[in-house]
Design a protein around this nucleic acid. Structure first.
Lengths: 122, 122
DNA sequence: ATTAATACATAAAATTCTTATGTATAAGAA
DNA sequence: TTCTTATACATAAGAATTTTATGTATTAAT
């Protein structure tokens, strides 16, 4: 038998992260070429020093959607008798990544402008 | 009779804005003391040069929730025979604003760190 | 031997927003 | 003067995304 007790901290205790999961996945894949789901959760935890924890319930459906949309290709591997699904960017996925990153930069500028107008002079 | 044809552009054509509406409302009220709903939509449009358009369907329920949560007080006024509901921060709302702004700063730092790790050295 | 870590998955519920619609007054254009 | 746009509120169905909870299975560590 199995037993599972979970503690769900997820997305930084702030709902600002809502809507950024896709951007995060695409950017990580742009930098690391080929990653599997669990690896993404660990990498995000590491890069954010524990601030951001991607939950499985958000990650896997998101990966499936990106694949269905043609932004990711999947390749199944078996390592130590355990399943791994490696994802990588398609050509279209690479384009979408550029676009998503531009959106993020734009979001940040807009929000800083809204929230702290004195510091933005350009 | 009336007729209404709407063009819904809303939240910057990017779902990164999901989750930031509350922060935006609170910050505007911190700066402008007292505002009504329609005024908020216009102010946001103006401050973001049209990039961000708050829809009524998002704004009004959000204002009602903030009021129900004790973060905003409301005061009804009649100007030119037209109804206006002025909202202002409660004491608790002022505290929450500080907290929400800190969350935003933190979100921006975390995302920049994730997305462009080379530029962050601190 | 039991727990923690690795590795996938899905599904109900919550949250937030979009889209659509409803109501009403005032101002401006045709 | 009539039609449209702007001002000002509201709610509700549906979409999208995430949280919370659960399910299955293998390997490593205690």
């Amino acid at each position: 038998m199995y037993k599972k007790i979970c503690i769900y901290l997820s997305m930084g205790n702030s709902n600002l992260y809502k809507g950024s999961l896709t951007t995060i996945i695409l950017k990580l894949l742009e930098e690391h070429d080929k990653m599997y789901g669990y690896e993404i959760t660990q990498k995000v935890k590491e890069l954010t020093q524990g601030e951001l924890k991607i939950t499985e319930g958000a990650l896997y459906p998101s990966l499936h959607k990106l694949e269905a949309d043609g932004l990711l290709d999947v390749e199944v591997a078996k390592v130590d008798n355990r399943l791994r699904k490696y994802y990588k960017l398609t050509e279209q996925g690479t384009k979408e990544t550029v676009s998503k990153l531009a959106e993020l930069e734009n979001y940040i500028k807009t929000m800083q402008n809204l929230v702290n107008p004195k510091l933005i002079l350009e």
